[in-house]
C-alpha cells in the first residue's frame, strides 16, 4: 500500500531521519526533565481515515486494565509539510506526570488536563523540532487540543470529517524511566501535505 505515497527508499530515509530526530529529542527532554526517556525506533506506515477513527474511538474510555486513554492533537506546518501530531496516553499516572513536569501534584480535572497538554506540547515540540532540523526547515505549531475537551470526538468521527484517503504516519513510543508514563506519538501527514516532505527526502537521497 505504501508504494502509493512513498517509495521504499523514501520510507527508509524518513525512518532514518526520524530516528536521528528522536535521539535529539531524547537529549533535549533529558535536559529539561532530568529523566531518561526511552524512545522506540520510529515506525513509518500508511494509514487511512478508518485506522485513525479506530484510535480516536478508543479515547476517553477505559482500556482492558481500567485505565482511561487520553489523546492530545497539535497541528504543525512549515517547509511544504503539514500535519498533526497525536499523542496517546496509555495508562498514565497523573501524579507521575505532575512529578515529571515538576508540578506540585496532579490536583483537579482542569489541572490534569493542563498536565496532558503541557506534556504533549513538550514531547511534540522536542520531537518535531528535531525532525524540522533534519529536514532543514522550521515548523509553526498550533495550540494543543485535548480530544474530548477542546473538540468533540463524536463530531470528528461522524460526517466524514477527514477529507483524505491516505496519510503517512510515523509512530513513536515514549516511555519514561521510573515513571508510569507510556505514550504513543503519531505524526500524521495527509496525502495533500506530503509533497514538501518527499522533495526533502529525495534531496537527502541524492
Amino acid at each position: 500500500m505504501s508504494k502509493y505515497l512513498l517509495t521504499e527508499d523514501q520510507r527508509d530515509c524518513l525512518q532514518e531521519i526520524t530516528n536521528v530526530a528522536m535521539g535529539q529529542a531524547g537529549d533535549r527532554l533529558a535536559r529539561l526533565l532530568d529523566v531518561f526517556v526511552v524512545l522506540s525506533i520510529p515506525h513509518v506506515s500508511v494509514l487511512n481515515p478508518t485506522d485513525i477513527a479506530m484510535t480516536l474511538h478508543s479515547l476517553n474510555r477505559e482500556d482492558s486494565d481500567n485505565q482511561v486513554v487520553h489523546g492530545v492533537c497539535q497541528g504543525f506546518i512549515g517547509g511544504g509539510i503539514a500535519g498533526e501530531a497525536m499523542l496517546i496516553f496509555n495508562g498514565t499516572d497523573f501524579n507521575d506526570l505532575a512529578s515529571l513536569l515538576k508540578y506540585e501534584k496532579a490536583g483537579d480535572e482542569q489541572a490534569e488536563n493542563e498536565l496532558l497538554m503541557d506534556t504533549a506540547n513538550v514531547l511534540n515540540g522536542a520531537c518535531l523540532k528535531g525532525l524540522a532540523e533534519q529536514l532543514d526547515s522550521h515548523f509553526s505549531f498550533g495550540p494543543p487540543m485535548l480530544l474530548g475537551q477542546h473538540c468533540n470526538i463524536h463530531d470528528l468521527l461522524v460526517g466524514n470529517n477527514m477529507k483524505w484517503n491516505q496519510a503517512l504516519v510515523v509512530e513513536i513510543n515514549y516511555a519514561i524511566e521510573n515513571h508510569q508514563i507510556n505514550c504513543d506519538l503519531l505524526l500524521v501527514i495527509a496525502e495533500h501535505s506530503i509533497a514538501g516532505l518527499l522533495q526533502k527526502l529525495d534531496y537527502l537521497l541524492d
Binding site: 533535549r28 529539561l32 488536563n113 497538554m117 523540532k129 505549531f141
Partner: peptide, 16 residues
Amino acid sequence: ESVFVLQSATFTTWEQ
C-alpha cells in the same frame, strides 16, 4: 523554562 530549554513554543488555553 520549557521554551528556554527546548527552544519550542508553549501554549496556554482559556479552558485550563
